[in-house]
Amino acid sequence: MADLDLRKVRYFLAVAEHLNFGRAAAALHIAQPVLTRQIRALEKELHARLFDRDQRHVELTDAGRQLATDAPGLLAEADAARLRVSRAARGSGTFAVGFMPGLIVTGPVRSLGAAHPDLTVEVRRTGWDDQVAVILDGRVDVGYIRLPVDQRGLTVEPLFEEPRVAVLPAEHPLAGAGEIAVAALADEHLLQDPGAVPEWRDIAIELRGRGAVRRAPSLATVEEKLEHVAIGHGIVVLPLSTATFYRRPDVAQVAISDIGPNRVCLAWRAGRHSRLISEFVALAHAEQAGCP
């Protein structure tokens, strides 16, 4: 079997998304006959029909559905490889560190820069959705991540743990409580991915059924989430350092008695061996331990 042509795979995904060759061709800015030929060539290379089509309908075959599942990861990995190669070609003069909201990385970053005067140490703020992606695609060399995440492709080293708190509107009936159980939040609307707070998700399903776990709104930053909390649209559960860093008078934070802590780890791409990564990890541990 011939190697997959990634350009044809991109064309395939466009057709799979639109299920219309004309609209897919327009989105790709190519002529429809060219797109049709490329898809036929891809089917020939794979020895599989990817689409069932007639003059009015286009549908994915079983083989097409399988490729539609596999192709995004394949293309993402290819793009990541290009980025890593590009960074390597520029030399080892930069080192990038990713960090999640609420985490302060100044100490280890400054120490690494002081130990290597010719090295530019960069920092990149990440979020729940991209904290792993920036490591895998090479945008950062090492990242401070908050679990749970998909750890495939990563080397992960625990750094520390911290409590999690519920962040509520200031006028919420529970806002003045010293501590609450997660079951007290089961009726609330969670303004974040339920996978980030599996304890809330599980108790909400147990008490209210699966319909209780509504899809979270598309809120990319802590600042956006807190605006929605303050307005009264729902609640969030945050690590204590994040809630403290973004403290504001129109929201309240309340300790949760029966959920585990947030675990903060250092992570880098599995199989990557770098003296600078090892040095940075040691500096981060020393900082956490309170060593000079």
Results as ranks from 00 to 15, higher is better:
40 R>F: 14
5 D>R: 11
12 F>G: 02
283 L>M: 05
30 I>F: 06
111 S>L: 08
262 N>K: 11
107 G>H: 15
277 I>M: 01
76 A>Y: 06
160 F>D: 00
79 D>I: 04
154 L>Y: 06
286 A>P: 10
208 R>K: 11
108 P>R: 12
165 V>C: 06
137 D>R: 05
55 Q>D: 11
172 H>M: 05
174 L>P: 00
17 E>P: 02
257 S>M: 12
89 A>R: 14
78 A>E: 02
46 L>W: 07
47 H>M: 15
179 E>M: 08
247 R>A: 14
152 R>T: 12
60 L>I: 06
164 R>I: 07
111 S>Y: 10
84 R>G: 07
32 Q>L: 11
85 V>E: 14
146 R>D: 11
49 R>L: 14
64 G>A: 00
108 P>V: 01
288 Q>Y: 08
59 E>L: 14
104 I>Y: 12
96 A>R: 04
288 Q>N: 15
283 L>R: 12
73 G>W: 04
24 A>T: 03
49 R>G: 03
215 R>Y: 03
157 E>F: 12
68 A>D: 10
165 V>E: 01
138 G>D: 03
119 L>C: 03
193 D>G: 10
281 V>M: 07
177 A>R: 14
276 L>F: 06
12 F>A: 04
177 A>N: 05
264 V>G: 04
81 A>R: 15
96 A>Y: 03
269 R>Y: 03
150 D>P: 00
121 V>I: 02
131 Q>N: 03
107 G>E: 13
205 I>E: 07
66 Q>S: 12
38 Q>K: 07
103 L>W: 13
103 L>T: 02
163 P>W: 04
31 A>R: 08
60 L>R: 08
125 R>T: 08
271 G>K: 10
171 E>I: 15
163 P>D: 08
17 E>L: 08
15 V>Q: 01
82 R>V: 09
166 A>R: 01
268 W>L: 00
7 R>K: 15
35 L>C: 13
63 A>C: 05
77 E>M: 07
292 P>M: 08
269 R>I: 11
144 Y>W: 10
90 R>M: 13
285 H>A: 09
42 L>N: 03
238 L>K: 03
207 L>D: 07
165 V>L: 10
38 Q>G: 03
59 E>A: 15
191 L>M: 13
274 S>A: 08
188 E>I: 07
58 V>N: 04
4 L>M: 02
27 A>P: 04
114 A>N: 15
183 A>D: 05
79 D>L: 13
172 H>S: 12
251 V>F: 02
97 V>C: 03
151 Q>I: 12
190 L>F: 06
125 R>Q: 14
196 A>R: 12
112 L>M: 07
135 I>V: 15
292 P>N: 12
91 G>L: 13
260 G>P: 12
71 A>S: 08
256 I>A: 07
150 D>C: 00
163 P>Y: 06
134 V>W: 01
120 T>Y: 08
179 E>W: 02
162 E>T: 09
134 V>H: 06
21 F>N: 09
30 I>A: 01
171 E>A: 15
114 A>D: 15
113 G>M: 14
284 A>W: 01
182 V>E: 00
10 R>K: 13
287 E>G: 09
83 L>C: 09
14 A>P: 04
26 A>N: 09
178 G>V: 06
255 A>P: 02
43 E>A: 09
237 V>D: 01
252 A>S: 15
20 N>A: 05
125 R>D: 12
215 R>E: 10
4 L>S: 01
183 A>L: 05
224 E>P: 05
231 I>E: 14
276 L>E: 03
218 S>P: 09
7 R>I: 13
213 V>S: 00
261 P>N: 13
